[in-house]
Design a protein around this nucleic acid. Structure first.
Lengths: 219, 219
DNA sequence: ATACCTTATTGTTTTATAGACATGAAGTCA
DNA sequence: TGACTTCATGTCTATAAAACAATAAGGTAT
């Protein structure tokens, strides 16, 4: 190793990923129970040390797949936390990510992982409450100004599903007619077939158009 | 040092700060000339290694003051870059910041530092062009939706100065009347005295009100 | 003192966007 | 065929954004 790099004592670097999903009509976040000290038996954001030849995003993806089995998800870097005292074991800088997954087909691996409603979070390890707050703010922002919400839905979805999703995240009701008008006017959706075999008026299915620029001012 | 932390080979961590300012009616960024390998004599974003007991933000502030002598500036974390190959010397993760300073009273220390117009950037070291692109995007976003622009102005300023600043950053002209109306309607400014000793109609001076929430949708 | 030069300040009309609001339509099932 | 459930839709009003040009306040030069 080169001289200049070894001149300084190096911090450890971890990646932690806040994984959001919708389950039971509620916004959930995935936490794992710590099996060892420090904060043994406390819940924590899933993460791990960055391998020396692994990019930050790869590290996040690796942990995400390890915990949830899903690969193609929305993943975005959040923020890096590096207060010298945040880990009692020594200097640990964490680069945080947040992920949105459609949890329909997710089977959690092991019973150390659990979905928590964001309204009923347990006590968490380290400074992970700060990270969760930050992630939630970012999530709301992203819902308001970008198209990421659709990563939480199946490929084909109804307008009602979209609206339900926004109402869950913002904890607020929207007028049906205005909501539909707004979303449709953005020109980001494609009509698909209508749903079959429902015992009421069959809803129109939509899919998100490919190649939408990210920022679109949704609400 | 504890066992688990020393189990993994650690990366080096640096902090790089993209420093913006307005000079000569132009948006400028501060770069420093590298004095040693790698990329010797190439220009780079000012930065340095994070000390083992120094927070990330403190590291950024320290470098910023070292280069510019200014202390109270707008400073915000940008993004962390951690591709394993970004530094030929070994694994180096960089946490980037961006800063806005009013350069009126800044005297650069040493001649290895220089202001570059963002329209005439030189070739830069490492992946610093990616970082500069990212910083510029963030800057524009911040100008559109927050009040940070005023960090580039003196404490008391005229409406024309505000408008000039926005026109420089967005490289676009705005209608005077609509611009003033918009800014004033935000209710973020306080009238100060009018300017004296100018050979034309003396402009009203304004200052930014204290305790403005950050996000206000300026444009 | 007056004409002139420079920059600052202001208001109205038009257009687009957001918000409030209630009824009929399309299926299934009994 | 009537009842039930969810889906789909249109108009009016209020607010915000955009387009647009004339006058005001000083200083300077003659």
């Amino acid at each position: 190793m080169d001289n200049e790099l070894s001149k300084y004592e190096k911090p450890s670097v971890t990646v932690d990923t806040v994984i959001f999903s919708i389950k039971e009509n509620d916004l959930k976040v995935l936490l794992v129970k710590r099996s060892s000290s420090p904060f043994k038996d406390k819940w924590a954001i899933p993460g791990g040390f960055v391998k020396i030849d692994q990019s930050l995003e790869d590290a996040a993806k690796f942990k995400l797949e390890e915990k949830t089995g899903v690969k193609d998800v929305y993943l975005e870097q959040l923020y890096s936390f590096g207060s010298p005292k945040r880990d009692p074991r020594g200097r640990v800088i964490t680069v945080t990510y947040f992920a949105l997954i459609n949890s329909d087909n997710v089977k959690l691996k092991g019973d150390d992982a659990k979905w928590f409603s964001i309204t009923e979070l347990p006590q968490v390890a380290f400074d992970h409450n700060t990270i969760l707050d930050y992630a939630l703010k970012r999530l709301k922002w992203k819902f308001e100004y970008t198209v990421v919400a659709f990563s939480l839905l199946p490929k084909k979805f109804t307008m009602t599903q979209v609206q339900d999703l926004y109402e869950i995240v913002f904890n607020q009701k929207f007028d049906k007619r205005n909501f539909r008008k707004k979303i449709l006017s953005l020109n980001i959706l494609e009509e698909q077939e209508v749903m079959r075999n429902v015992s009421f008026r069959p809803p129109q299915l939509y899919s998100l158009k490919a190649n939408i620029g990210e920022i679109v001012n949704i609400l």
